[in-house]
């Protein structure tokens, strides 16, 4: 005879195994990693730099406003599409961060209410026993909640890995690595020839010095922007790598190896975020 329904048996089994100290997912590493990835994916300054390049190029190529205004319009539309693509990634990371957060499911208040209710029944149960009962119930429900969270995280990671890898390792990465980088190198050459020509056109030494300073300033700005391309690519790679590891270990999210790797990737992403913020 089956006295306990199947779902309750499952909950009980999970709760007991957790209480007895067997595996229950610690999702802190997943949460930290996805939270940091979310922060990185929200950075879209590179797209703004790309879309506004024609505006900057007009400085070095005056008299071409029609061409650059057309380019500006096209790029504004492209930027919108790219930002939408990035927002899909950040929305996903936000979902993963929320799902793996400690505070997702909190039964504490319900359990406190329950123990108070039992106390008011005046059934001769001591306060010590009531407290112990409440504590045990909290532990069990917390464990069940954790197991439920881990299952949901595994589900979402399992479903999202293919499309996420396609975006992070495919089109988005190609655009940043090829087109954004080339765009900045075009600007670099424009700066170089424009200021060289300006310097050559002047006979005055002070004016030549001024031109040199401006060239240096613009070149430094350009070099910083090129550094952000490298940093951003590293971020995309680390997010892709981390998610692949999550996918490969989605059935053992609390494995020590995974936690260590996610922690290390989180640190690396944070280092690159600092580079982005500094530029």
């Amino acid at each position: 005879m089956n006295l306990i329904p199947q779902r309750r048996r499952w909950l009980l089994a999970v709760a007991l195994s957790c209480v007895l100290g067997t595996s229950c997912a610690d999702l802190k590493a997943v949460h930290e990693w996805s939270q940091t990835s979310l922060q990185a994916a929200q950075y879209n300054e590179l797209i703004t730099t790309y879309s506004s390049t024609p505006q900057r190029l007009l400085r070095y190529d005056p008299g071409q406003s029609e061409l650059y205004n057309t380019q500006l319009d096209l790029r504004k539309r492209q930027a919108e599409a790219l930002k939408q693509m990035l927002s899909v990634v950040s929305d996903y990371m936000a979902a993963l961060a929320t799902l793996s957060a400690d505070s997702t499911i909190d039964y504490s208040k319900n359990v406190d209410t329950l123990t108070k209710s039992i106390g008011t029944l005046n059934a001769g149960i001591s306060q010590t026993t009531l407290n112990a009962t409440g504590s045990l119930v909290k532990t069990m429900l917390g464990a069940v909640a954790e197991a439920y969270q881990a299952k949901q995280v595994a589900n979402i990671v399992g479903q999202a890995n293919d499309p996420l890898q396609t975006i992070l390792k495919g089109e988005l990465r190609d655009i940043v690595d090829n087109d954004f980088r080339r765009d900045l190198k075009i600007e670099q050459t424009f700066i170089d020839i424009y200021y060289d020509n300006l310097r050559k056109s002047s006979e005055d030494i002070a004016a030549k010095d001024g031109v040199n300073e401006w060239k240096e300033f613009r070149m430094e700005q350009n070099a910083k922007q090129l550094k952000t391309v490298d940093a951003y690519l590293k971020i995309l790679d680390k997010i892709a790598e981390g998610h692949q590891k999550l996918f490969d270990n989605r059935d053992k999210l609390d494995s020590k190896a995974l936690i260590t790797e996610l922690f290390s990737l989180t640190m690396k992403i944070r280092d690159q975020i600092k580079v982005l913020e500094a530029s």
Binding site: L57, R75, Q78, R182, D183, I186, F190, I193
Partner: peptide, 13 residues
């Protein structure tokens, strides 16, 4: 040289 850079910009876009 400037013309070539313009083409590279257009092709990038």
């Amino acid at each position: 040289a400037r013309t070539l850079l313009r083409v590279a910009t257009v092709a990038t876009t």
